[in-house]
C-alpha cells in the first residue's frame, strides 16, 4: 500500500512534467505537437552525450539538453507551424513525420541499442517496506519545482500572462499590444525546454532508446484529452490520475499492462466526455 502510494506520487510528478509542455502548445496554438516525444529523446540523448560520452559535469549536460530542446521548439515553430498557419491536421501530420525522422537521426548518430543513463543523483531511501532511489525522488521534486515556477511565470509575469491571454482570445491579446506570433514562438521554446528536461529525468527512470518518444507522447496526449485543458493545476490532477492508474495496474495486475490503461482511458474519455473532464482549452 505504501509502495503504491509512494510510487504513484513519484511517477505522477514526472508525468505532470512530461505533459505540461505538450498541453501548453495545445492551449496556446490549438495544435497537437506529435513530435513532442522527440524533445524528450533529444533532451535525454543530449544529456547522455555531454555527461557520459564527453564526461562533462551533469549540470552542463542538463543545461545543454534544455538549450537543444528550446532550439528544437523554436525551429519547429518557424519551419513548420508558421508556414502551415497552425492548420491542426497539417501540423499534426508534419510533426508525426518529424518525430520518425528524428528517431532515424538518433539511430544514425547513436545506433539503436538502448543506453542506460547513470543516476543523476546516487543512493536510495527506505521508507516502510518501500525503497525509493534518490534519482527518481530528485526527478519528482524537480518536476514539482519546475511546475510551481511555471505556474508563477504564467500568473505573475507580463509574458506569462500574455501566453494565457493568447490561449483564451487572440484578438483580445492582439489589441492589448501582444504579438500572438511572438508569444507562440516563446511558448514553443518553453515547451521544447520542458520536454527536454523531462526527457533527461524520464530516461534516467527508464532508459534511452530511439523509440522512447512514443510512451511519453501517449501520456501527454492522454493528459490533454482527459483534462481537456491546458491549465497547470488541471495537468497535475490528470497526471496523478494516470500515474496512479498505471502503478496500480502494473503492481496489482501485471507489469505488461504499463501504458495499456492509459490508452484505454483516452478512448473511454473520447467516447463519453469529448470535451474532457474540465472542458476548456485555455492555459
Amino acid at each position: 500500500m505504501t509502495q503504491i502510494l509512494i510510487q504513484g506520487l513519484l511517477l505522477s510528478g514526472l508525468y505532470a512534467l512530461i505533459a505540461i509542455g505538450f498541453t501548453m502548445i495545445f492551449s496556446v496554438g490549438r495544435v497537437l505537437n506529435l513530435a513532442y516525444g522527440a524533445y524528450l529523446m533529444l533532451g535525454g540523448y543530449t544529456y547522455f552525450w555531454v555527461a557520459q560520452t564527453m564526461h562533462m559535469p551533469k549540470p552542463i549536460g542538463i543545461a545543454a539538453a534544455i538549450g537543444i530542446g528550446a532550439l528544437a521548439g523554436v525551429a519547429m515553430h518557424r519551419l513548420i507551424v508558421r508556414p502551415l498557419h497552425s492548420d491542426p491536421v497539417a501540423v499534426e501530420i508534419s510533426t508525426l513525420i518529424l518525430a520518425v525522422i528524428i528517431q532515424a537521426g538518433i539511430v544514425l548518430v547513436f545506433n539503436d541499442a538502448p543506453k542506460v543513463l547513470h543516476p543523476i543523483v546516487d543512493g536510495v531511501w527506505r521508507v516502510g517496506g518501500a525503497t525509493v532511489t534518490f534519482n527518481i525522488l530528485t526527478a519528482t521534486v524537480a518536476s514539482w519545482v519546475i511546475l510551481f515556477a511555471l505556474y508563477h511565470f504564467v500568473r505573475k509575469t507580463h509574458v506569462g500572462r500574455a501566453i494565457s491571454a493568447v490561449s483564451m482570445d487572440i484578438k483580445g491579446a492582439a489589441l492589448s499590444g501582444v504579438n500572438p506570433d511572438r508569444i507562440n514562438m516563446i511558448t514553443w521554446a518553453i515547451s521544447g525546454a520542458l520536454g527536454a528536461i523531462a526527457g533527461v529525468f524520464f530516461a534516467s527512470y527508464t532508459q534511452l532508446s530511439p523509440s522512447m518518444w512514443v510512451s511519453p507522447l501517449i501520456i501527454a496526449v492522454a493528459v490533454v484529452i482527459v483534462g481537456g485543458i491546458g491549465s497547470i493545476i488541471g495537468t497535475l490532477i490528470v497526471a496523478h490520475i494516470i500515474g496512479f492508474m498505471e502503478i496500480i495496474s502494473t503492481t496489482l495486475i501485471a507489469a505488461e499492462l504499463r501504458g495499456v490503461f492509459t490508452m484505454l482511458l483516452i478512448i473511454v474519455v473520447l467516447v463519453l466526455l469529448p470535451r474532457g473532464l474540465f472542458g476548456r482549452g485555455e492555459l
Binding site: R155, H158, R161, A162, S164, A165, M168, D169, K171, G172, A173, L175, S176, G177, V178, R280, E282
Partner: peptide, 24 residues
Amino acid sequence: YAPERAHLFPFMTVEDNLLVGGYT
C-alpha cells in the same frame, strides 16, 4: 480598443485582464 463583444480573457480575473491591457 474596446471591440465588439469585448474579447476578454474569460478564465482570467478582472485584475489580470487589466494587467494584460498594460502589456505595453
